[in-house]
Nucleic acid binder design. Structure first.
Length: 342
DNA sequence: AAGGGACGCAACCGCCAAACT
DNA sequence: TAGTTTGGCGGTTGCGTCCCT
């Protein structure tokens, strides 16, 4: 029954490929093609598993591969496609001639995820963090919102201070004239060198305090709470308006953070239209779930991944072609992307 | 100059659907 | 039709290199 095993696990070599092995594999495939991966290592005189040979060929040896750095246009394509199809690297790579799924995956994990996070955009949902927080807040009553705010601010503090600490030296070294570093969008009127260098340790606590103050002020604003007399805020039946207003405190908190940390390179509302016009600022914000893009394009947020599990669970989506039926068509998708089964 | 941590990339692992016997 | 392998995919890991202290 069935076929014979692809290779004897005990007799196969593992680890890095040598130039000799590459030559053997390349010359064999040049002559005989890639029809049967089980037989290729045997016939080519390689002590490798067929699967290992296939990976080596598809990810490295194929003559049509690009090996250089990713261009900005390629990065934009990856981000756009990822906002629609999630971690389906093979689909994304198919739109980038010369790039493999492994290339795209590695580049996403090592560069693009951090780049998006640094711009205040969640790499899983492609929404601004502030927008995410507001969305979460709409599902909670204000007392819970307050607790969530505390937790979220802790996250922001750690994340942003980490970024600031890491970048400070680079900015001072490379941009003594105050210009924005490569790949980052400068804010008008901000000077990186002075703003970073002037930060004191106590600024960190000041920042968090500022945010907390802003949030609590917004929470207690009479305009954001129901007006029934003699009912303590925590006991009031919350109206849609009040909850909606309270949820805005998250966006305010985030923007307060970005504003109060002088020199924060991406500024508040990094997904708005108030950027500097750099390709990154424009392209990132075309994500299907971005508020700004939703408004500009008249979208209702049906496209993209509304929850992290779906975005992360590439395998779970394989059979689900609904992602291609999204109302949210942001750019021209090729036929095979729109109809992956074809 | 040396040690340690961070980073990037290549390769492996495990799962799934299709193909095959 | 059932059992098995193959090919393909996404997630994860290991290792070499770079950079900072």
């Amino acid at each position: 029954m069935g076929r014979i095993p692809c290779c004897e696990k005990d007799n196969v070599k593992r680890g890095q490929w040598t130039p000799e092995e590459d030559n053997k594999l390349s010359s064999y495939i040049a002559q005989h093609g890639t029809r049967n991966w089980r037989l290729i290592p045997k016939n080519a005189g390689l002590q490798r598993c067929g699967k290992s040979c296939r990976l080596r060929w598809t990810n490295y040896l194929r003559p049509d591969l690009k090996h250089g750095e990713f261009q900005e246009s390629e990065e934009q394509t990856i981000v756009k496609l990822h906002s629609v199809v999630g971690n389906r690297w093979s689909l994304i790579a198919a739109q980038l001639p010369g790039r493999t799924d492994n290339d795209v995956k590695n580049h996403w994990n090592t560069k693009l995820k951090k780049k998006l996070s640094g711009m205040g955009i969640d790499p899983v949902t492609h929404k601004p963090f502030s927008h995410l927080m507001a969305e979460i807040a709409t599902t909670l009553a204000p007392p819970q919102v307050a607790h969530l705010t505390e937790a979220a601010l802790g996250c922001f503090k750690d994340e942003m201070l980490h970024l600031l600490t890491k970048k400070r030296v680079d900015f001072q070294m490379e941009h003594s004239n105050g210009a924005a570093p490569h790949g980052l969008a400068p804010l008008p009127g901000r000077n990186f060198t002075t703003s970073y260098a002037s930060r004191r340790p106590s600024d960190e606590d000041d920042t968090v305090q500022k945010i907390k103050l802003s949030v609590s002020r917004a929470m207690q604003d009479p305009n954001t709470l129901p007006s029934e007399p003699n009912i303590a805020p925590s006991n009031k039946p919350w109206t849609m308006v009040s909850i909606g207003e309270a949820s805005n405190t998250f966006a305010e908190a985030y923007n307060t953070f970005a504003t109060s940390v002088s020199g924060f390179p991406y500024g508040p509302s990094s997904c708005g239209n108030d950027g500097d016009g750099s390709p990154w600022n424009q392209s990132i914000c075309t994500g299907s779930t971005c508020t700004g893009a939703d408004q500009r394009l008249g979208l209702n947020g049906k496209g993209g991944h509304e929850d992290g599990d779906e975005a992360e669970g590439g395998k779970g989506m394989r059979k689900d072609s609904d992602v291609f039926n999204s109302d949210c068509v942001l750019w021209d998708l090729t036929d095979d992307l729109m109809n992956p089964a074809a």
